[in-house]
Structures are given as C-alpha cells and as structure tokens.
C-alpha cells in the first residue's frame, strides 16, 4: 500500500519521542551548565607546566628549557627563551630554566605532541575547556606563570598518569642519589688510596 513505509517510519519516530523520556539509550543529551558529562582520563585540551611546589611555582618548574616541544609543536605555538644562569631543579642538579615560556592557545590545536615528547615530564595536557578571553591578541597568550600548575593539580586531573610519573621520577632520583653516593665513595676511596700510596714517596723528598 502506498504510504505504508511513511506510516512505519512515523511509528519509529513516535517510539523515539516517547523513549527519550525514560530510556537511557535514547536520552543522549545532558543539560550542560548545570549537568556535566564526565571527562575521560585521557581527555586533553591545552598544555600546562608542572611544578613541584605549589607555594613556589616558578622556582620548582620541572622545565629545563630544552626547547624540544618548541621545535616539534606542529602549529609552532610555543615560544621559549632559555636562562643564562643555572638553578638547582627538583633533584638538586643545576639546570637551565625558561625565562620566557609562552603558549598561544589561540593557535594551539591540542594535539598533545609536546606532552608526549617532553623528556622531563614537565609539559602535560590540561583538561580546562571553558576558555574565554576579552582581548583577542594577548587574552589567549599564556605566560609562564599562568601555565605553571602544581603537581597536586596534575594529580587531581590525571591520577593514574601522575602517579606513574611520580614513581618514575622518584626512581630516577634514587638512582641519581645512589650514583652520587657511589661516586663520592669511589672518590673517597681513591683519595684514601692516593693518600696511602703517597707517604712513601713524600718523606724522602721532604727529607
């Protein structure tokens, strides 16, 4: 019968309309500002810079201004200027630090390649997506102190990944300490050996 296909289709539409009130399969939307869909563990928006101590964000940045992210960034939205002097980093090793570190989030496409390539676990992806600015030239240009976020914040947005990073860094720190200790011991042993070897030669020359 002509028109039966249309009637069948209308029956489906009616079923969907009624189902949208009680069937979770058909309730696809949430009332956004009041309700929010949860963000996944891997959700990414814009980069941030992790610092060890929230009280002193700029003093404890993990970033050592190696500029790998600046070179690899596909839309070239990162700008870094290295420091002239060195400051001890979180492990106590003297390192360079970024004097200027800006990310133009108006250009950033949120691909996450900077976070993937960073060898110091410094640059990570944030989960903030409600970003607005009133100034179109500098409003979305984030400076170093705006980018610096504490490790605690990083733990709050990505618990699993942050725990893994912390464990790895702690292991590296331990290895570095042990190496330093072993080096100090070896040095002391060498000095002792030298001291032990020295006395027979020195007295005759002194005499």
């Amino acid at each position: 019968m002509l028109g039966s296909g249309i009637l069948k289709g209308l029956a489906v539409t009616a079923k969907n309309f009624a189902g949208s009130f009680y069937d979770p399969e058909r309730m696809a939307t949430v009332q956004y500002p009041e309700e929010r869909a949860p963000l996944g563990e891997h959700y990414r928006s814009f980069p941030l810079l992790v610092c060890e101590n929230a009280a002193d964000p700029l003093g404890t940045l993990r970033c050592v201004a190696c500029t790998i992210c600046e070179k690899e960034c596909p839309p070239q939205c990162i700008y870094i200027e290295k420091s002239k002097d060195k400051k001890p980093d979180a492990t106590g090793k003297p390192q360079l630090y970024p004097v200027i570190f800006t990310i133009d989030t108006a250009v950033c496409m949120g691909c996450g390649i900077c976070a993937e390539l960073c060898p110091f676990d410094s640059i990570k992806m944030d989960k903030v997506f409600e970003v607005t600015a009133t100034n179109r030239f500098t409003g979305l240009l984030l400076e170093r102190d705006q980018l610096a976020k504490s490790n605690a914040y990083y733990h709050s947005i990505r618990p699993a990944e942050a725990a893994e990073v912390d464990a790895r860094l702690a292991a590296e720190r331990l290895a570095a300490e042990e190496k330093a200790k072993a080096a100090a011991l070896a040095k002391a042993a060498a000095a002792a050996a030298k001291a032990a070897a020295a006395p027979p030669t020195t007295p005759p020359s002194a005499a």
Partner: peptide
Amino acid sequence: IDLFEALSGSRMMCN
C-alpha cells in the same frame, strides 16, 4: 565519538 574521546583524548582530532 565518546569512546574515541575516552581513549585518545579528543572526540574528532584523535591523533
């Protein structure tokens, strides 16, 4: 697309 976001971090630009 929600599955893609949960896995890769982005709905459409999965990378």
